[in-house]
């Protein structure tokens, strides 16, 4: 498979803050590549460098086979972009916005086809400021598809959306995936990465801390199950120490406890005995498989949304 993007030793600092610190990766054509990490990890900085909105301090970039020191208008002509925050001119309709952006590219697909793809047919004559959050995000994706791009950058495309709107966006991205578009996705939602991603890099503090397919990353935990519950606020330190002796790899985030276990049955019995001995209630108890958030917690000691 061809490489759509190659990045070597990319660096970018803002004053004394190293936003991107020596990051290297490759994105293959036709795959959904995901940068997963919490807010402030450096994901948006990387994607803005690739979009040509920011210049790196150093590093090598090869995009669509061209070695670049700067993202040129010719390369932008082959890319589609959904920014982390998409703002549009007010007092302009959806149709006018599409036609405006069409004029920026050398070749575009018919506007009505894109409008249909992003399900905005009923809103073509509406002013952009009257759209809901989900509709605006679909508009943003539609604008990114106008030039039938070879690479589509989606920077946190579902942040701030309600669950239904988020699912609609996921469905749209999955359609693009089936069309073998190369998609560069950034997100801090583990579920989004697990659902959509072919290959994931996990980032924190400007560095890559793990890479692989979602399945590979999760299997790296070497635990098959997770017992999750919320603690009683009255729990004492000695009780927690006792829990740690039974389950050495447990993780506590605020009041949520994750126990990573190989064998569910025996582990649950041990947990119940520990709780009964101390008259502790296990709130919101659930059993699940490990996910990318657990990978992140394992690597950093904190959650993706912390």
């Amino acid at each position: 498979m061809d490489k759509a993007i190659e990045v070597r030793e990319l660096r970018k600092s803002y004053g004394s803050i190293k936003a991107v610190d020596g990051v290297s990766f490759e994105v293959m054509r036709g795959e959904v590549f995901t940068l997963l990490g919490p807010n402030g990890a450096g994901k948006t900085t990387i994607v803005e460098i690739l979009e040509g909105l920011t210049e790196p301090d150093s590093g090598d970039l090869v995009i669509l086979g061209q070695k670049l020191s700067k993202i040129t208008p010719k390369i932008k002509d082959r890319m589609g972009v959904v920014l982390q925050e998409n703002r549009f001119m007010d007092r302009v309709t959806v149709d006018e916005t599409f036609k405006l952006f069409s004029s920026f590219f050398s070749k575009t697909l018919p506007v009505k086809d894109i409008v249909k793809k992003v399900s905005l047919e009923e809103k073509v004559g509406s002013l952009v400021e009257t759209l809901s959050g989900g509709q605006k995000q679909r508009l943003a994706i539609g604008l990114a598809l106008l030039n039938d791009p070879e690479i589509i950058f989606l920077d946190e495309p579902t942040t701030g959306l309600d669950p239904q709107a988020r699912r609609n966006i996921w469905d749209l991205i999955e359609e693009l995936k089936e069309e073998k578009k190369t998609i560069f996705l950034t997100t801090h939602y583990m579920e989004e990465a697990e659902r959509l991603s072919d290959f994931t890099y996990i980032m924190d503090h400007g560095e890559i801390i793990a890479r692989g397919t979602p399945a590979e990353l999760v299997s790296g935990l070497d635990q098959d199950n997770v017992i999750e519950f919320y603690l009683d606020p009255s729990l004492g330190v000695k009780d927690l120490e006792a829990l740690g002796e039974i389950f050495p790899g447990y993780n506590l985030q605020d009041e949520k406890v994750n126990l990573y276990v190989k064998e569910m049955g025996s582990s649950f019995s041990l947990l119940l005995r520990w709780a009964e001995e101390r008259d502790i209630k296990l709130e919101n108890l659930m059993f699940r498989r490990p996910n990318l958030e657990d990978v992140f917690i394992e690597l950093t000691g904190k959650g993706l949304r912390d």
Partner: peptide, 11 residues
């Protein structure tokens, strides 16, 4: 940030 979106295109 509206111009920022414009200039993510070849404009």
């Amino acid at each position: 940030g509206i111009l920022r979106r414009f200039f993510a295109t070849p404009l």
